[in-house]
Structure formats: structure tokens, C-alpha cells
Design a protein around this nucleic acid. Structure first.
Length: 421
RNA sequence: CCGGUCGUAGCUCAAGAGCAGAGCGCCAGACCGUGGAUCUGGAAGGUCCGGGUGCAAAUCCCGGCGGCCGGACCA
């Protein structure tokens, strides 16, 4: 039996990395006082239909249940979180800070770092349109990366509002913006040129656009970008916003770069957007989407959020050898003769009751083989239980690393061991 | 949806029309109250699936499926 295409069985070191990322992220969500919500893994199809274009809908696992309802496996969790907010929390004290965790599904061709089932974690701040909310989300991201030991991450901040307003000003209508923005997001110069051609930008606007999307670097570039786009109506406010965000990030000592070439897909983003890269792989993405709550049927509500690619983060940890994989048990109890098995079962139970990670020989191996086997499983200490020792009221404990052996009294064994180990 | 590449034992790979093999791992014995070594033995594969050509197919042909890598797309 084979796995369905694009799925994985995660085991061993990789699973250990995955758990570590989950634990780290969950811990920080709590510390930042986001409240967790667990939403269903499938939703009514229309929840995802509303905010997505045709190509995106193509990639949704959709199905009819036995009563004919159109359902879909969630391709992301943000819509569910917002549905929940609209259903139950819209009159809760603002802002509402939600976080979530779970598997998502997309019908895509699998390739490097891309599977049909993957784990996403994320947060949403609902109700605040202020730059400090954007900063809060980015601060969480920065701290997460640091806690995971990935200090060389690259945080890039852009702004889709500026991009869209510039295009609007240049006479590119909503519908024609998307292909151009896609090209920009891909950073493919040939495509960008072709799309500029197609959008019929005049020379001045072309120059402004190209200069804008090639503006990358520290906060000092902001002034220049601001100057370039001077004539574009409405962007002044966006730059105020970016400059506030920039100050906020500097206040918390976060390293980041502006990159006005970030378009973050096309979905629902309206303001500042950001991405985090490690080793050229995008592991985190987020931004402001002030229109989504309304789109999903709620009252207008500003929102900012982020999604973490948990599997990708785990991959990075594995590839950098940062995963501690807890080999075998700390203790292995081995009987010297078959008659002593019962006593061994008793001992291992005592050890476990004392909270120790203990195992017992289950294959009926002779002592020699049992020791070899314990060693190959990275057991730290072996407790050899034999008739002679028991007659003296003792057992033998052997350190598998050093080979050093000592005898310990059988009575209160677990207590003695947990004291010394 | 498109392209490259690969698919034989749990793992890494041989055999390239003529009895399906090795190394590692696993189990056991030699030794049986002290490990990693060595030696010996054992279990484990109808060669990804389905068709076709041949006396004969893991091997050649066609079609699927799957892995890895990339393109399109990426909420």
C-alpha cells in the first residue's frame, strides 16, 4: 500500500524537529497572549470560494458528503479563524488575538518543500488598524526565529498598498494589476518587462515602478522611495504607516529590510506585508488584510496576521543538524535467566512509577545479546538482574558509555536511581 | 497542468533477455552472569502496477502510479 501522492510519514528525527517547532511556536503564542482556537479540518466549500480566484479553487480538495453538502478540506486556516471571529467574537473586547495550529491540504504538484498535506500555525490580530499591531506580529516572528536558533533569517517588509496605488495612478485597472503583480512577486525581469508593456505604462510611470520594486534595504531607503512616488495619491498615508512600523521594529531591535517587490500572492492583503526566508526558502509570510472580515460577511474590521510553515521550519532544523533526537531509553532492565523475568517486570514498573524512562528486555535474549542490543539502541544504563545478586539483595547497574558497573540494593532501587541519575 | 530523472530485500545498490544477488540491518548459535569483534546459520523480494513482444522479461516496447528536482501556480 502506498501513500497518497504528496503525503508523508513523518518519523524519527524529522518528527522530533516538527514537535520542537510546534512547541516553540505554541509557547510563544501563549506568551504573546494569543488565544488558541481549533476549527474543523473541513468547512463549507463557500468559505474558501469567496476570497479566492479560480486557479486557487482548482487546488482545493472539495467533495460532497452523503447529504449532498459541498465541503472542502481547508487549504489554510485564516478563513476559519475569521469565520469564528464573525460568529462568536465580534463583540469581544478589541483587539481579538487568535492563534491556530493544524494540517492544511492543497491539491498541487508536489515538489521541494511542498506537499499536499502540511502543517500551518498562525495568528490574527482583529480590530486594530494601528502600526503597533503589525509590529506585534512581526515581533512574534522575530522571536520565534531566534528561539529556534535560526538567527540568520531574513525578514523582508513590503507594502501592497503602495504598489496598487501606483498602478492605479498609472491607469492600470484592478483586473490588469494581477498579472503584473505576479511578475513582480516572482522577481522575473523579463516577465515584468512584458507585463509593463502589456499594461501600457507611460515612460515616467515605468521608471517609477521599476525603481520602486527594486528598492530594497534598510529603513534609510524609505525616504527615497517616498520621494520617487510623490505624485501618487494616497501613498503618503502608507509611508507614514511604514515609517511607524520601521520605528517599532527598531525599538525592539529587530533586523529587517524593506523590499517593495513583495506582492504576497494577490489574495487579500491590503497594507504592509512581510516574508521570512532561511536559506532562500520562505518559511513565514503575513501582512495586513483590512478587507477580509467584511468579504467573509462580517462588519468591516482591520486585521493583521501571519502564517508559519511548520514543516519547512522543521526541515531547516534537520538540515542544519539542530535536532536532538532522544535515542533509546535511559534504563534497560535485563534478566540473566528466564526465571527472573517476573522480577524484572516488577523493577521496570517501579522505575517507571518513579518517572524514569525505562525499558525491559522483551525478546528473551541471552545476556550477551541483550547487552549488545541495548547498546545498539543507545540505552544509557542497563540494570542486570541475576539470581546471585538478588540473593545478596542487590542488582547490577552498568553504564553503557563507560562500561563502569556498580551494585545497588534492590530495596528502594527506583528511589536510589532517580537520586543519582 | 508541463519538463528532467529515478523505481530490484527494512536500507544502499548489483545483475541489462537465460536459476534474483551482495553489503548493511534484523533474528539465532558458537560463549550462556557482561556489550560493540569474528565465524556460522536463518528470516526477508512473485524486481512499483497493467498490458505487449519473445521459447524465455527485473532487463525490450506502450500506458499508468509513485519518489526526487524544476516550470506554471502558490490563499
Amino acid at each position: 500500500m502506498m501513500r497518497p501522492k504528496g503525503t508523508r510519514d513523518v518519523f524519527g528525527e524529522e518528527l522530533s524537529a516538527l514537535r520542537r517547532v510546534e512547541m516553540t511556536v505554541r509557547g510563544l503564542f501563549e506568551k504573546y497572549s494569543f488565544e488558541e482556537v481549533e476549527t474543523p479540518m473541513f468547512e463549507n466549500f463557500e468559505l474558501f470560494e469567496k476570497k479566492s480566484g479560480a486557479t486557487v479553487i482548482d487546488q482545493i480538495y472539495a467533495f460532497k458528503d452523503k447529504s449532498g453538502n459541498m465541503l472542502a478540506l481547508r487549504p489554510e486556516i485564516t478563513p476559519s479563524a475569521i469565520r469564528f471571529y464573525i460568529n462568536q467574537l465580534k463583540s469581544a473586547p478589541q483587539p481579538v488575538k487568535l492563534c491556530y495550529f493544524g494540517s492544511c491540504f492543497r491539491y498541487e504538484e508536489p515538489q521541494s518543500q511542498r506537499w499536499r498535506q502540511f502543517t500551518q500555525a498562525g495568528v490574527e490580530i482583529l480590530g486594530s488598524d494601528r502600526p503597533e499591531a503589525d509590529v506585534e506580529v512581526m515581533a512574534l516572528v522575530v522571536e520565534t526565529m531566534q528561539k529556534l536558533g535560526l538567527r540568520d533569517f531574513d525578514l523582508r517588509v513590503g507594502h501592497v498598498g503602495v504598489l496598487r496605488k501606483l498602478l492605479e495612478h498609472a491607469g492600470v485597472g484592478d483586473d490588469s494589476q494581477d498579472p503584473l503583480l505576479r511578475a513582480i512577486d516572482r522577481k522575473d525581469e523579463e516577465r515584468i518587462d512584458a507585463e509593463i508593456e502589456r499594461a501600457r505604462l507611460n515612460l515616467t510611470d515605468q521608471k517609477i515602478l521599476l525603481e520602486l520594486i527594486n528598492s530594497k534595504g534598510e529603513s534609510s531607503i524609505l525616504e527615497n522611495v517616498r520621494r520617487i512616488t510623490k505624485g501618487v495619491p494616497g501613498v503618503e498615508k502608507d509611508f507614514e504607516n511604514l515609517s511607524d512600523i520601521s520605528e517599532g521594529l527598531q525599538a525592539i531591535g529587530a533586523k529587517f529590510n524593506f523590499d517593495f517587490g513583495i506582492a504576497r500572492g494577490l489574495g487579500y492583503y491590503t497594507g504592509a506585508v512581510f516574508e521570512v526566508y532561511v536559506d532562500k526558502v520562505q518559511v513565514v509570510g503575513g501582512g495586513r488584510y483590512d478587507g477580509l472580515v467584511e468579504l467573509l460577511g462580517g462588519k468591516p474590521c482591520p486585521a493583521v496576521g501571519v502564517g508559519f510553515g511548520i514543516d519547512r521550519l522543521a526541515r531547516v532544523l534537520v538540515s542544519r543538524g539542530k535536532v536532538e533526537y532522544p535515542g533509546g531509553p535511559d534504563f534497560m532492565v535485563i534478566p540473566v535467566a528466564p526465571e527472573i523475568v517476573g522480577e524484572c517486570l516488577k523493577i521496570v514498573k517501579e522505575l517507571r512509577d518513579a518517572g524514569l524512562r525505562a525499558d525491559v528486555e522483551l525478546m528473551g535474549r541471552k545476556l550477551t545479546k541483550a547487552l549488545a542490543s541495548a547498546d545498539s539502541r543507545n540505552v544509557k544504563k542497563v540494570i542486570v538482574v541475576g539470581q546471585k545478586d538478588l540473593e545478596q539483595g542487590e542488582v547490577t547497574i552498568r553504564d553503557m558509555k563507560t562500561g563502569e558497573q556498580t551494585k545497588l540494593p534492590r530495596k528502594d532501587l527506583a528511589k536510589k536511581i532517580s537520586g543519582t541519575a
